[in-house]
Simulated assay, not measured.
Amino acid sequence: MNDHKTILKNSDWVKGISRHGELIIGFIDSMNIFQEAVYVVVAESDNEELIGKTIPMSLTQVESIPDNETKDAGQLEFLIDLALSTGDKEWFNELSAELNGKKQSVN
């Protein structure tokens, strides 16, 4: 899936298929370069039990999701909840600012 040309880093959004065949969309929490593994916090999956959990995935199982895709208010609110549950204050502030910008541009 991954052509290894894209350099992945913590907080990058990725999608892939788990070793059990489940669709995974989430962000990289940490990496183990020696094992060629990433630990992904699952934001969306066809297995709802995985949502919110951190799972290990091989670099060959994931591919980067372009960051330039525009998020709607509902997606931003979901991500804000996720940032709160993971205790990521910086990401929370970034998402909150983006959501506030969207709300101000509508008014």
Rank of each mutant, 00 (worst) to 15 (best):
L84S: 09
K15D: 06
N32W: 12
L84V: 13
K15I: 06
K53I: 09
E49Y: 13
L23R: 06
I51E: 12
E63K: 05
N10S: 01
G74P: 00
L8F: 02
N107E: 14
G21S: 02
L23S: 10
V106C: 09
M57N: 08
K5W: 01
W13D: 07
H20D: 04
K71N: 05
E94W: 05
I51P: 10
K53A: 13
Q75V: 05
F78V: 04
Q104P: 09
Q75H: 05
V41G: 00
V41C: 00
S105W: 13
E90K: 15
K102E: 05
I80N: 06
S85P: 03
E36L: 08
T70Y: 04
S11T: 05
I28V: 09
L23T: 11
Q61E: 11
Q104V: 14
S105D: 15
D67G: 05
G21Y: 13
A43E: 03
E90V: 14
M57S: 10
L99P: 01
Q61D: 07
F27G: 01
F34K: 09
Q104I: 15
D3W: 00
Q61H: 04
N93T: 03
T60K: 14
T60L: 10
N32K: 12
L79I: 03
L82A: 13
S96I: 02
S105R: 15
A83Y: 15
T6Y: 03
D67W: 03
E77W: 07
F78G: 02
E63G: 00
Q104E: 15
G52Y: 15
I55N: 09
G16W: 01
N68M: 14
D12P: 03
P56Q: 06
L79G: 08
I17R: 11
I80F: 11
S105E: 15
T54L: 09
L8M: 08
N68P: 02
M57P: 09
A97P: 00
M31S: 14
S18Y: 07
L79M: 11
Q35S: 10
G16L: 04
I80D: 03
A97I: 06
N2S: 05
A83R: 15
G87Y: 09
P56C: 07
G16M: 04
D3K: 02
S64Q: 08
L95W: 09
N10E: 12
N100G: 00
D72G: 00
F78C: 04
E48C: 05
Q35C: 05
F92L: 12
F27M: 06
L84M: 15
M57V: 02
T86H: 12
K71F: 11
D67A: 08
K9H: 02
I51M: 12
T54C: 15
S85A: 07
F92N: 07
